[in-house]
Design a protein around this nucleic acid. Sequence first.
DNA 1: GCGTTGCTTCGGGCGGGACCGAAGCGTCAG
DNA 2: CTGACGCTTCGGTCCCGCCCGAAGCAACGC
Lengths: 220, 220
Amino acid sequence: MAEIAALVGDPARATILSTLFDGRALTATELSYAANVTPQTASGHLAKMTQAGLLTVLKQGRHRYFRLATPLVAQMLESIMAVAASAPPRYRPRTAQEDRLRLARTCYDHFAGILGVSIADALCERKHIILSDDGGEVTTAGQTFLNDFGVSLTTQTRRPICRHCLDWTERRFHLSGVVGAAIATRCFDLGWVRRERNPRALQITPKGREGFRRNFGFSI
Amino acid sequence: MAEIAALVGDPARATILSTLFDGRALTATELSYAANVTPQTASGHLAKMTQAGLLTVLKQGRHRYFRLATPLVAQMLESIMAVAASAPPRYRPRTAQEDRLRLARTCYDHFAGILGVSIADALCERKHIILSDDGGEVTTAGQTFLNDFGVSLTTQTRRPICRHCLDWTERRFHLSGVVGAAIATRCFDLGWVRRERNPRALQITPKGREGFRRNFGFSI
DNA sequence: GCGTTGCTTCGGGCGGGACCGAAGCGTCAG
DNA sequence: CTGACGCTTCGGTCCCGCCCGAAGCAACGC
């Protein structure tokens, strides 16, 4: 019992398990970003958890997709979360650094945080994108919009065009996949966002605030 | 979440929690002996777990009695054990001690093991109890049966009347909740079961075997 | 008062394991 | 073939936290 609990007891591994909690299968690199560690560190964690039977792995080309091995594991995580949520009325310090991460950050290669869900909301509301359970799709109006915005979509890749990804601070969906990545790249090129010293945190420039308001209809 | 799991993830603490798993309250020194560490080490562990809300402490003279803080904690431990028992095909020696645990043991305040699932099966088969996903219910026939058996159900408590709980050795459900606890208490009073030296393992007396056969219709 | 017992806090030793840089292997695109 | 990419293994560093010895408190019995 102690071994299983110890596996969940490491912050990096706990983050990985939480990320997989909804049943998705993600690649090792994606999970390393989620856990905020380097790929080689994540690789070690994933190997341990797979060996212990917490995860299963699906090989597909040069990618390895990891997911929770059984519903029993998900149930265990849920019961641990239940205790964690009920037991400690512990305050977290809520640092300025965390606030910045909550506002805007990168998640793998796309945007997350309030910025990420705002973009997703805006595109969904205008029916430029339709989200479904197994990845969404871009409408023709959406393709026009994205083209005007300066994003050209290549369908050459095997990667899902447009996937949604649960945001861990906002508890709502933001865009990932090719579309999410392309929008992020374009925003960097336009000078709307800049990386801070902490490479995951993002700074939204004044030009960016104006641009998001005009093109996407939200102020941040 | 990682913090809670890390608390369970230490061998000494896991042993302490297992020892408390049946709902008893034990002193710090007893627990230090159980975990095979010195009292001062155990004291540190107990303080941490109490602070995290896993344990509660009852002061009585110069003794301090520790017990699991809530049934939620017991449920978490059970689910971790379930994963630990199912996941690793790591050989376990299968000692006589484990066999006894598998036959009949206490789980917090109710029965588990073969005895626990047999009782649950018997009551379900005769439609004395209907199990559903969110706790079950006792039928009127079931209330009559339990009354004749000497169990009086109070509905005063907020605790679920009758919950089912996955058994980590049998991989099937046994009864917990108010009903499970009441049946266990009654069986102790009737002298059908006795605690062994290992406080979690139960011994079924000859009178108990006869009683279970007659009242519940299974031999064990 | 005194000693005993149950439990805690303090200090330092020590080992396990998390982490990263560098390098190696397999897969895929051009 | 060559380069890029995803992932892993290897080596080494460093820190967290488990553990115990010693000492300090508090509650009993006498």
